[in-house]
Design a protein around this nucleic acid. Sequence first.
DNA 1: CTTTGAATAGACCGACCGATCTATCCGTTA
DNA 2: TAACGGATAGATCGGTCGGTCTATTCAAAG
Lengths: 202, 202
Amino acid sequence: MGTSRNSTTPAQRLLDAASSLFAREGIRAVGIERILAEADVARASLYQNFGSKDALVAAYLDSQHETIRAGHARATARLADTVDRILVPFDLSARDVKRRGFRGCLFLNALTEFPETRHPVRAAVGRHRTWLADVWRDELTTAGAADPEGTAAQLELLYDGGLAGCKSARSAEPVLRARQMALEVLRRALPQPDQAGCSRTA
Amino acid sequence: MGTSRNSTTPAQRLLDAASSLFAREGIRAVGIERILAEADVARASLYQNFGSKDALVAAYLDSQHETIRAGHARATARLADTVDRILVPFDLSARDVKRRGFRGCLFLNALTEFPETRHPVRAAVGRHRTWLADVWRDELTTAGAADPEGTAAQLELLYDGGLAGCKSARSAEPVLRARQMALEVLRRALPQPDQAGCSRTA
DNA sequence: CTTTGAATAGACCGACCGATCTATCCGTTA
DNA sequence: TAACGGATAGATCGGTCGGTCTATTCAAAG
């Protein structure tokens, strides 16, 4: 049990252990001691490398953000179609949701556990959400959408709703439904390739 | 400070105090002692009336559910139009969201703080969410919607997404956007009053 | 008046929390 | 080889957690 002690730094092992435990059981529910045991790291190393549990939590969120960002970059790299690219976060989440023990959006969960306005958690969550909104807005702008900002906000809403639904229903259905609804939103927001159709009233 | 000791039972004072504190700061973040002080109630009375903190938490969720249910009934009572009735939860939430310190959906938050599958919290959350889904499904069925179940699920998704967005953005905008999107969904799902229009492709 | 049962105050329990500190060990670099 | 810096184990800190217990008060019902 516990992450191997060889070939990784204590800081990395702490981050890995914390990520696994926080994601599975929640942040407040997991004490320092559990993390130290799982990481096979000395108590002082945690405080040497991170300074406090709060800082470790922020580092955990940032590392998750980086992982997601990298996965997103990898997945979009081989996609040319705008719609496909925009739907990537839905598809990646659908995959995550299917892993048993899914507990919803890590970032929103962290916000639930640390509601204090000036807690470092809020900044870390903000970074992630801003990134996602920017990705969508840029993609929509490039594709010539009429209202990139508003459409991106709609996608965010569907994304949040999908994850929230999966968390409570313990099923992948909501996020798939969110994807479907996002597709519908994009059909209206993006300039149609050609496709002769009836005039649509606003 | 603290709820008045007269004219209410200790159980009610405990529920009131717990509701206020849990909603404001989270459940795990609030200890027994804080609740007792706020309720001005003896320690033993808590365990006499509820048995444990977990049970108090469940009672808190059920009481919130009942409050919301009553508010919903009051608001829909004077509405005749199906669309207006269906949008009531969005409107009520928009009002809640504007109160500063809004922390998102109480029930989803509770699920975040108590992820254990067989925790009483999960059952209480399930009761609330089932109720809301049923309300929408029944309303849609009565109105002759083509796919009441699916449309209700879409509304749930928008509702969850709106609250999640408000929680992270500290703004009422997402839930208003959710309302707007719900309106769009309903426009397609409900049989149009008459209104000659072009045939719409699925 | 007496009995009963809930509410009271507050000591107390073991467990755990996040955090600090001492002291030892060990690989790297000077 | 000597010095240094990070990692180690583990005792220890004060504080808080949820929960139990004793003993007392008090109002309503018999």
